Amino acid sequence: MSQVFDERQCVLGEGPLWHPERQQLFWFDILSKQLLTREDGTPKSWQFDEYVSAAGWVSRNELLIASASKLFRFDLESGASVNLCDLEADNPVTRSNDGRADPMGGFWIGTMGIHAETSAGAIYRYHKGELRKLFGGITISNSICFSPDARTAYFADTERQSIRRVALDEEGWPASEPALFVDLGADDLNPDGSVVDGEGCLWNAQWGAGRLARYAPDGTFLQRISVPAVQVTCPSFGGSDFRTLFMTTAAEGLNGEADGKTYMTEAPVPGRAEHRVRL
C-alpha cells in the first residue's frame, strides 16, 4: 500500500530522481519552479526563476537540470549553476517536461507547450556536449526510460495515449523508427512518466487513474499499484536495495488532501540505479 513520503502538495510534481551516491530523492514542482528533497527527514527546496522539470546526477554534489530554456549543472551544496546549452530558448511556447539519463551517460529530455499546444514539443538527447533533436511533433512528452540491456528506449506522447519504443545503437542513438509498445487508448488511460525495473519491465504512471501499471518487455499488462492521488505523474526506484517505488503526483485543478503529495511503496521487484550523466 502506498504511503506518504512528503506532505508538500506540488501543483505539478514531476521528475523524481534517486541519487545513488547521496541515497536521497530529488523531485520537481514544475509549475512552482522548484526542486525539492528531504535531508535527514527535513523538507528542503530550491527556487528557480523559470520552470524546471527533470534531472540526472553528474556527481555527488551536482545535478544536470532541464529548465524551460536550457540544460544546466546545479551544485546542491552551493546553489551555483553553470549553463550547458540552450533548450528551445527561442521558443516561448514550450518548456521542458520528462527526462532521464540513458545507459551511455547521455540525457534525454522532452519538451511540450506550456498550455499543451498540439505538436509543439519534441524529444532531444544531450550527449558529449551536443544537443540533438530526435523526434518532433510531440504534444506532451513523457515516459522516457531505457531497457537494462541499453538496446531500447521508451517514450510517450500522453495526448496519443500510447507508449512507443525505439531501438538504440551502441552509442545510444536511435537506430530505428519508433514502434508501438503499449496502446492505452482502448482503456482511455493517459501515460505519464515511466521507469524500468531490474527485470526489464516498464512501470507507467497513469494520469487521472490513480495508479502505476507494470508492463512486460513485450507490452503485456502484468499488475497495478493504486496511489491515493488521482494525478500520478512519475515513478522512481530508490532506497539502499532499490525496492522502494517513489511516485510524484499533481494537485493542479484539484483540491483533495491526497493530491500533489509524493508517495512511496514497497516494490515487488527491485529497480536499478539511475545512470550517471557523463559530461
Rank of each mutant, 00 (worst) to 15 (best):
A251V: 05
P228L: 09
D49M: 02
W173L: 15
D157E: 08
I65D: 00
D29L: 01
Q9D: 02
A273Y: 04
L184H: 11
R22Y: 07
S143C: 14
Y126D: 03
K128A: 15
C201S: 14
Q231I: 00
A205Y: 05
L17W: 05
R73D: 01
R60I: 06
E39V: 14
G79D: 06
F181H: 12
L35R: 00
V4C: 10
D98F: 04
D90L: 00
G106R: 13
D183P: 13
Q24V: 02
S236Y: 03
I144D: 08
R211A: 11
R8Y: 15
G238C: 02
P217T: 10
Q206V: 13
G136M: 10
A153I: 09
L131V: 03
N61T: 15
L84R: 05
T152Q: 14
L279A: 09
S81F: 04
A101W: 11
G129F: 11
P92K: 00
C234H: 13
R60S: 13
M104L: 11
D187E: 14
R276Y: 08
T244L: 05
G13R: 05
G129V: 10
A179G: 07
V4R: 01
I163M: 11
E170P: 01
S67W: 04
F155S: 08
N91T: 11
W203N: 05
K133P: 07
Q9I: 06
S141W: 05
K133A: 13
S69C: 07
A229T: 10
Q23F: 02
E88K: 00
T244E: 06
V58W: 07
K70F: 01
